[in-house]
Structure formats: structure tokens, C-alpha cells
Simulated scan of single mutants.
Amino acid sequence: MDAQLKRGFLDVCVLASINQQDSYGYQIVKDVPPNLHLTESTLYPLLKRLESAGLLTVYSVEHNGRLRKYYRITEAGIAYLNGFLAEWDEITTVYEYVKRGATK
């Protein structure tokens, strides 16, 4: 998959995962579709970028004597997800066009 396209899908997949419930890094990696090949080394910079953009917030909870960072989606993150879904019809149209052109 193209790196730029993958990056866009990773953003919305991570936000969708966190939208289901607040979550932490390892769990997010397990939740995201495996064909995106999300690793923890890719996830943490992505989470930092989404946090800097105001799409999620971070808080810590003690777990087995250590602090675990949990991520929570913000209203801006929900709006971002909704924007992606609103554009899905356009994405589907482009996909169908390319598919028709590729199968001739």
C-alpha cells in the first residue's frame, strides 16, 4: 500500500479504535486491521502527532505498579472521523474508476 495512503488510513483507524473506548498503545496495535502492519514504533509517533493536532488526549493510569498511558479521542478527533466518513463516497468513486481502468 502507498505510504501516504497508509498513513491516512492509520490515522483514522487509530482514532476509530480509541473512539470505541479509551485505549493504550499495545491494545491499539492489536485492534487496528493487521493488513496495515501497525507496529509500536510506528504507533507512538502517530499518537504524538494526533495529540499535537488536538485529536486525542493522554492520561496515565497505574497498572501493575507502572503508569500506563491511555488515549482518549477529543471532539475534534470525532469530527475528523466524521469528515473521513463523509468523504467516503468520493473515495469509493475514485476507487471504482481506477478499478474499471485497471481491468481493461
Rank of each mutant, 00 (worst) to 15 (best):
96 E>S: 11
42 T>D: 01
75 E>Y: 07
39 T>E: 09
68 R>A: 10
50 L>A: 07
16 A>T: 05
6 K>Q: 12
24 Y>N: 10
87 E>R: 11
100 R>Y: 09
45 P>L: 04
10 L>S: 03
87 E>Q: 10
37 H>K: 13
42 T>G: 00
91 I>E: 03
19 N>C: 07
95 Y>E: 11
98 V>P: 00
104 K>Y: 07
63 H>Y: 13
35 N>C: 09
30 K>S: 08
71 Y>T: 04
8 G>S: 08
9 F>S: 02
16 A>C: 02
103 T>S: 15
33 P>W: 09
59 Y>G: 06
47 L>E: 02
79 A>N: 09
12 V>C: 01
16 A>F: 07
38 L>M: 04
81 L>P: 02
54 G>V: 11
28 I>W: 00
87 E>H: 08
8 G>P: 00
82 N>K: 14
69 K>Y: 08
24 Y>E: 12
29 V>K: 03
53 A>H: 10
36 L>R: 01
91 I>G: 01
98 V>F: 11
104 K>Q: 11
45 P>M: 04
103 T>D: 10
49 R>E: 14
15 L>M: 06
78 I>V: 14
50 L>N: 04
47 L>C: 05
91 I>K: 08
25 G>M: 04
31 D>A: 12
84 F>Y: 15
89 D>R: 12
88 W>N: 03
102 A>M: 13
39 T>V: 01
38 L>P: 01
35 N>F: 15
26 Y>P: 03
20 Q>T: 06
67 L>I: 05
9 F>D: 02
60 S>D: 13
79 A>D: 12
62 E>W: 03
16 A>I: 01
103 T>Y: 09
64 N>Q: 14
37 H>T: 04
59 Y>V: 01
25 G>Y: 02
59 Y>F: 15
44 Y>A: 00
66 R>M: 09
62 E>I: 09
80 Y>V: 03
44 Y>K: 08
87 E>V: 02
79 A>S: 10
86 A>D: 13
85 L>R: 10
15 L>T: 04
24 Y>W: 12
5 L>F: 12
62 E>R: 14
103 T>K: 15
75 E>G: 07
2 D>S: 06
58 V>W: 00
3 A>C: 01
64 N>L: 14
1 M>L: 07
91 I>R: 10
16 A>P: 00
32 V>M: 01
101 G>I: 11
47 L>R: 05
62 E>P: 01
36 L>M: 03
104 K>F: 07
87 E>M: 12
11 D>S: 08
84 F>R: 09
38 L>Q: 05
64 N>C: 08
43 L>T: 03
45 P>R: 03
39 T>N: 03
57 T>H: 06
7 R>T: 08
87 E>A: 13
59 Y>K: 13
20 Q>K: 12
27 Q>M: 04
12 V>N: 03
